[in-house]
Computed example of a mutant assay.
Amino acid sequence: MNNKILITGANGQLGSELKVLSKYFSQFEWVFTDRDELDLCDLENLEVKITQINPAIIINCAAHTAVDKAESEFELSDVLNHKSVSIMSKWSHVNNSKFIHVSTDYVFDGTASVPLKEDANTGPINVYGQTKLAGEIACMRENPNAIILRTSWVYSSFGANFVKTMSRLMQERDSLNVVNDQIGSPTYAADLAKAILTILIHPKWQSGIYHFSNEGEISWHEFALAIQEIGKFDCLVSGIPSSAYPTPAKRPQYSLLDKTKIKNTFGVVVPDYKESLARCMELLKEV
């Protein structure tokens, strides 16, 4: 019986957390790939390469996630976030393989005021969001049996992320300004990895779009204050409006995800953001 799981983007935050978890799930044969082993930009050979691996399950963690760079790198974003997803999704459908594709809260326009359900209207306001939405549409068109997991504000003890940057800056500087008018919830990649495994071992595969982030409704400023509190950093952290910190890509003002569906369908447990943040920062201390 084929129990092979192909992970793309293996060296990213989520891929790295899945690698940590994989040793507890030896019932699966894990194949972790990054650009060197499986180049998603090589669209012509992508099907052939996946066929050689022949996975029973594909978990697509790869993406072009540099949100500001994406504004000037549309082609690269479109290939990684959309065109390669279309090919993987089609392959999985034709070969009767399961496909989990990781997407983002950036598919929304940020004008909501209540937590966003999976069927809420999309309307991305930057290139990253546009290409990720195109990837979602292609994914479901090519394989209606796929699962899409939208997440937000991802961090972990791996890679570059807000938690690591803030922890470093708070030790280097006396004061910091952090945007206080963008609302959402962070996601500890280790919790998202656990949610994915919960879906994989669930007796019933139920396709569709699901939302996952940690519990809590906060701004980036409040997130920074929580990092300061847990890390006991002596630094003045002030809140500023987005208008005072212009970026090449616009950010959604409000993109809090409603997690009811993933909890009810798969029994996924969603920890509070502060509890997960404390766990991650404890690991960072050891590094």
Rank of each mutant, 00 (worst) to 15 (best):
N2K: 15
L6V: 10
G9C: 13
E17V: 05
L18N: 04
V20C: 01
V20L: 11
K23H: 14
K23W: 06
K23M: 11
Y24C: 06
Q27N: 14
Q27R: 12
E29Q: 14
T33M: 11
T33A: 15
R35I: 14
E37W: 00
L38T: 03
D39K: 09
L40H: 03
E44T: 09
K49I: 01
T51R: 09
Q52H: 11
I53K: 01
P55L: 10
I57Y: 08
N60D: 14
N60A: 12
N60L: 09
H64G: 02
A66I: 07
D68F: 04
D68P: 12
K69H: 11
E73V: 04
E73N: 15
E73M: 13
F74N: 02
L76A: 01
D78N: 15
D78V: 02
V79L: 12
N81C: 12
H82E: 05
K83R: 15
S84V: 12
S86P: 00
I87C: 04
M88W: 04
S89T: 03
S89C: 06
W91T: 10
S92C: 14
S97T: 08
I100V: 13
T104V: 05
Y106P: 03
V107W: 01
T111E: 11
S113A: 09
S113V: 12
V114Y: 07
P115G: 07
P115I: 07
E118V: 13
T122P: 07
T122V: 15
N126I: 08
G129Q: 06
Q130H: 04
K132C: 11
G135T: 03
I137T: 15
A138M: 07
M140I: 09
R141A: 13
R141G: 03
E142F: 13
E142R: 08
N143K: 07
P144W: 08
A146Y: 00
L149A: 00
T151K: 03
V154K: 00
V154Q: 05
S156H: 03
F158T: 00
G159C: 12
G159V: 08
A160S: 14
K164A: 11
K164V: 02
S167Q: 07
R168Q: 15
Q171A: 12
E172Y: 00
R173G: 02
D174C: 09
S175I: 01
L176A: 08
V178F: 02
V179S: 06
G184M: 08
S185I: 09
P186L: 04
D191R: 01
L192H: 04
L192V: 06
A195G: 07
I201W: 05
H202T: 02
P203A: 10
P203M: 11
K204Y: 13
Q206S: 08
S207T: 02
Y210E: 07
S213H: 12
E215P: 01
G216D: 03
E217M: 11
I218C: 08
W220V: 00
H221F: 12
H221V: 05
E222A: 10
E222N: 04
A226E: 07
D234G: 00
P241L: 09
S243K: 12
P246S: 07
P246C: 06
P246F: 03
L256H: 05
D258S: 10
T260R: 09
T260V: 04
K261C: 01
T265H: 06
G267C: 11
D272S: 03
E275R: 08
S276C: 09
C280T: 14
E282I: 09
E282K: 13
L284W: 01
